[in-house]
Each structure stands twice: as structure tokens, then as C-alpha cells.
Nucleic acid binder design. Structure first.
Lengths: 205, 205, 205, 205
DNA sequence: AATGAATGAGCCTTCATTCAT
DNA sequence: GATGAATGAAGGCTCATTCAT
């Protein structure tokens, strides 16, 4: 899994391997049983370590959730950067946002599912401010990209706080429905429709 | 609060009044502390009744959550019906969907906040199938309205499972952001932008 | 046991009976194993109730310790009052202090043993300030009694903070030694010697 | 700190230096948080060594407590010997006991505080018998000194087990109060009053 | 000798639920 | 119907101790 490998790249070796194992086990447990119903015991059994060791590495259940959450955020952000780097015109940028979102969710459905359920928990916890700061920074970054000369003209003058909802709203809504089984078809099937809808919502035309 | 008064209309009298009190207390507790961290004890204290009494009326904590959730669903559905009844053309229907959504969330922010956090819980619980059925029925109802002769033509041929996301996605995304404090301006301020974006996303034009 | 019956006198009935049972079990466990090594489980087994019930009545292990501690304080204070009420002259007052101390420790050795080991814990806990206030009040009360006209003359001019140590020090030291098995003879055997030593230490003669 | 330097005198060099560091860190942690709440981890952080190293030198937490305790005992005993060596008459001996006690507590308040809280722990542990034996030997030694010809006559015929309480009781009681903040003035301020009280308590006059 | 990751038994506490009154 | 004391299973977390390196 590309996402959690990030960890390994930064801190290779046995220790990172263990942390990776714990994170993967936690991910599967959290998605299977939910955040609250998952016990440290379950995670311990799944990755064959000790309770104490999990606490040694993550401090608390909350800390484990936060670590996994930021791991997902980072991975998702990397994909966006890659897509955005290949885009030039405004519409390509909007597509990059939608495509990277859809592609990441379909590539990492487990992480995506986890992200949806963990956001509220992390936001309320001690890392809440860090999360909020990262969100603001990401939004600023995107809005700046879209308002570069040569792109700005193609886009409606819309409030900055509204823009992300117009672009990513439909994709997110569909992805949520897909991850919870309310719809069948993969979001990937509707990549273009979702990107087009986003473009129509914000384009100056 | 118009929403929970629904209950009272159906079962007037002291008993309904008590149920209403319990539901209101539960709502405020669930939103303040989250579903899992809210204890029956907290709710009891807030509405000044007894633990046993809450169980007498709702059977279990899960039952209380479900009752509150369906209460919100019903209220939201009523507003949609009212708006849809006043619409004729396709674009008016799309606006009715967006407006009723935005207006309900801003009129009942507490219920809306609760609905977001409780959906997963109810979906996994014993009422999960009922919830799924209601969702399917609602979507069918909306799609049918939009595909009546004289409306169908104005709308792109799009998969039924994708349509709701295109229409409500941006509004929902913005409302979530508003309820969790990530944006400042009330969704009501952007009603028209959100409705227009929805219309552009699905209109045949 | 006279001490804990105080509770029963104030709140008669089943509930008080239960609290009494829990306190008695706790006392025996704390003395047998020490404060930290005693588990709520042990206490539960000994008084045949449930873990939850102990928490229902005392809130926490710390709360149980504090309740027991103040129970002992109160009982000890009552005996002192009774003895002091029967004294007239200064020397009789000093004897009342020493005798009531010795008699209480020998009548309630378990409570006394507990008191010695729990004082530090209570002093550091949330009830610490209350304990300090009670101690100050008690000392003030005793010093006032001893400085009434007709008594003051028989006693050396000594700092108020030193007086209690001179009077009760030897008795306390011997009682500690007795409770921990370092000496064999009951403090009661040396009542008079201890009272006389106290009197010599403070008397003007 | 004179006390712990004893160790260094016996085993000079790096190793002793490390043991000394660990003991000092342990002392400060035990006094700040209490015996049970102090973790090996805390001590490790304070003296900047490793968990394993502490175990290498002291075997167990209990062993560390005992080592520190006996360290304090030994230091206190040395001061007593020095004071006693300078005394000739009975009253001088009693004063030596009180002065050496008061002077040691005020010179090493941290060690004294620790001694009070650790005594019960050591007495119950594997070194309990050794502690009891040392206590008995010390008492025998003191009583023997006081009953040498030329001294015996000045002192009341009192039970051997009562004597130490009469002499040291007031001083100990005041020192405890001082160490726990219940009184303000240093015990040193009342050295003479305490010594005089002790002498009056036991003198034949 | 020194290190610190790993272990796992065990504890305090919580809280949904029951039921006698 | 209403009450709230009582239950007890279960979970998060701690921490003394070990041991491979």
C-alpha cells in the first residue's frame, strides 16, 4: 500500500516495519468494527504484538487514530500534487482535483473509509488544531493555483470558502455513498461526469 | 422546534411532552459530546427524569438514537415535499432540492449535525435496512419527479445513482464544513450559487 | 465498631448499612495489603457487592479512602471532646489529650493504622485542603482550651505550633511502634507515663 | 550532599558516581510523586540513564527504595554517634539524641521525608527483618549508653520500649509536621525546647 | 556495561441495562 | 408508570521487569 509505505521510506528498518504493521491492523479493525468498538486487544491480536508495544509507539488509542488519519491525509495530498503538477489550464486543475480525489478513494478505499469516520474524532482531539491548520493551508494552496494569471479568467468570481464544495462536493458525496454500499458503480466510472460537473459549477462560461 | 413537535402532533399530551424532552436533551448531549461519549446518565440529568424512564420510552440507547434520527429524516423530508410541491419545471425541482436541504440545515443545525454523526450508527444497527429502504424510496421519488414528461428533456441522461450526488453534493459538502466550523458564512448566503451549480451539473444545456 | 456506626446513626437504613459494609471491608483490606496493593476487586469480594456499587457510593478508590479517613478523624475527635468536657484544670486537659489519643488507638487499632497510612494520600488528594483546615481548627480549639484563664498560668509560654508535638508526640510515637509491632506492650499500659511526660514537657513548674 | 557521599567513599569511581546519580534522582522523584506513583521511567529521565541500567545496579524498584532508605539510616546514625561521643552526662545524652535527630532532619529534609514514607514499604519487603534488627540494635545501644553507671541514677526507671518514644516523640512529631508543611518554623528553632521536654520526660528529678 | 524495545498481567473505571419497590 | 440502586462485563492504560543487541 503506497500510503503507509511513506512511513517506511522515512524511517526504514524494523521499527518502521512494526509501526506499519500496527497501522495496517488498526485500519482493518477500525473499518470492520468502527472506531469505538475496536479495542486495542483486537489490533494486538491482528498484528501479533503486545498491548504495551502499541502504547509504546502511539501513546494512546486516540494517538493511533490520529497517526493513521494523518497518514491518509498525506498520501491523498501527494496524489493531488502529482496531478496538479501535470495541469496547466484552469479546467485541467479542476479535473486534477476531482480525478485525484476519485482515484485515491478507489485506490485506497480502506483508508478513505477510515478518513471519513475518523475526521470528527481527530478534529475534537488534541490534534484538532493541527488538522484545521492543514486544511486551511491546503485550501489556500488550491485557491492560489486557480487564481494564477491565465487561469483566473476562466473561473467565476466565487467566495473562496465555497469553491472547494462546488468542485469536490459531488465527488465526495458519491464516494461516501459508494464506500457505504448505497451505490454500486465505482466512482472511477463517473470520473469524467464528476469532473465536468465541477467545471460547469465554477467555470466562467 | 418545529421538527420534534411532529411527535407532539401525533401523540399529544403529557407522555409525548416527556418523550420530546428526552429527545431534545439527547440531541444536545449527542452533539456536545458525541454519540459514544454521551451516557444515559447525562441525558437523564439534562431532562430531569430517571434512567429507567428513558429505557421505558426508547428501549435502549441505540433506540433513542434511531428515534432521533428518523425524526430528523422525517422533518427534512417534509420540507422537501413542501418545496417540491411548489415546483413545476426541472430547474425549479433541482432548486427545491438544494433550497430545502440548505434551509433545513440552517433552520435545524443541531438536528443536521446529529444526522451526520448518527447515520453510520443507525445504518449498522437493527434499523439499518429500514434506513436503506427509505433512502432508496426517496431517491426513486426524486428521480421520478425529474423524469416526468416536460422535465426530462431539460436534464442530461445521467445514471440514477449519480444524480443525487451532482445535485446535493456541493450543498452537503458546504453544510458539513459550516456545521463543523471550517467555514463562517451560513449556507443560506450561498443558496443560489449552490442551486445554480447543481442545475449546471445536470442540465442538458 | 463505634466509629463507623456514626454513619448509621446519621443515615439509618439499608443504604447506610451497605456503605458501612463497604467501609469495613475496605478498612480491613487496606490494613492487610496497603493502600496501593488493595484493589477494588478485593473489597468487592469481601463485602459481597459489585464493583459498580462501590463506585456508585464512593466515586473512586481515592474517594473511598478519604471517606474512611474522615470517618476515623471524626470518631477520634468525638472521644477527645468527651474527655475534654470532663476536664477542668490544665493538667487534666493535657491528660485528656493523651488519654483520648491512647484510648482511641487501642479501641480502634485498625482505624488508627489506616489513618497513619492514609494521611499522606488524603493530604495530596482533592480533599487535602479540607484536611488541613480541619487540622488547623482542631489545634486552635485545643490551644484555646489550654489558654483559658486559670489554666494558662500553669503552662509554659510555648509557641502554639510546638505545643501539640510536646503533648501528643510521645504517645503518637509509641502508638506507631505498637501498631507496627516494634513494641509489645499496649499503649494503654503506659497511659499515665505518657500523660505525665506530656505534662512535664509543658507545665510551668 | 554528605549523606549519599557515604556511598562514594566506599566505592569511589565512575560506577559509584552513577549509583549516586540514580539515588539522588530517585529521591527527588519519590518525594515529589510518592513511592507508588514514581515510575522507573521518571527516574531514568531525571538522571539520564537507561531503564536497564537502573535494574543492573539495584535489581528492582523495591531494591532501589531499600538502598536509599538504608543510606538515610546510616547517615542519620553517623550523626548520632558523633553527638553521643561528645556527651558525658545523662542529660547530654538525651540532648544528643534530640539534637542529632533535629539537625539531621533539617540538614537532609529530602532524605527525612523519604524515610517517613518508605519505612512501611521496607518493613514489609524482603529487607524487613534486617530493618527490624537494626532498630533493635540501635535501641539497645542507646539504652545501654543511658544506663551506664553515673548516668542511670539521673533517669527514671522506665520500660526500655517506652524510653525512645518519650525522648524522640516530640521531635519526630514536630519534624513530620514541618516536612509536610503543617508548621512553618524550622525544628532547629525549637531544638532546646524539644531537648528540654525530652529530659523532663525521663529525668529522675 | 549499557540500552530501550517489548512484554503482559492486572487495575481502575465506565456505563448500558435490569429490576425490585 | 416511574425510580434509581445495583450489576458486571469490558476496555483503556500503566509499568515493573526482561532480554537481545
Amino acid at each position: 500500500m503506497a500510503t503507509i509505505d511513506v512511513l517506511e521510506r522515512n524511517h526504514p528498518g524494523k521499527r518502521a516495519q512494526l509501526k506499519r504493521d500496527i497501522l495496517l491492523s488498526a485500519l482493518s479493525c477500525f473499518n470492520e468494527h468502527g472506531l469505538e468498538l475496536t479495542t486495542i486487544e483486537m489490533i494486538k491480536v491482528q498484528c501479533d504484538t503486545s498491548v504495551g508495544n502499541i502504547y509504546h509507539h502511539f501513546g494512546s488509542k486516540e494517538g493511533l487514530i490520529a497517526a493513521l488519519f494523518f497518514c491518509a491525509q498525506q498520501d491523498q495530498a501527494q496524489l493531488l500534487e502529482a496531478y496538479l503538477a501535470a495541469a496547466t489550464q484552469a479546467q485541467e486543475g479542476v479535473s486534477a482535483l476531482v480525478y485525484s480525489y476519485v482515484d485515491w478513494v478507489t485506490a485506497e478505499p480502506e483508508l478513505a473509509r477510515f478518513q471519513f469516520q475518523a475526521r470528527a474524532s481527530v478534529a475534537k482531539g488534541p490534534q484538532g488544531e493541527e488538522l484545521a491548520a492543514r486544511n486551511r493551508a491546503r485550501n489556500r494552496h488550491i485557491l492560489k493555483w486557480l487564481s494564477e494569471p491565465g487561469r483566473k479568467a476562466g473561473i467565476q468570481k466565487l467566495p473562496g470558502e465555497l469553491m472547494p464544495s462546488l468542485i469536490i462536493g459531488p465527488a465526495e458525496n458519491y464516494c461516501r455513498a459508494w464506500l457505504s454500499g448505497r451505490v454500486q458503480a465505482s466512482p472511477k466510472k463517473y470520473r469524467e461526469e464528476l469532473a465536468l460537473a465541477a467545471w460547469r459549477a465554477v467555470s466562467a462560461g
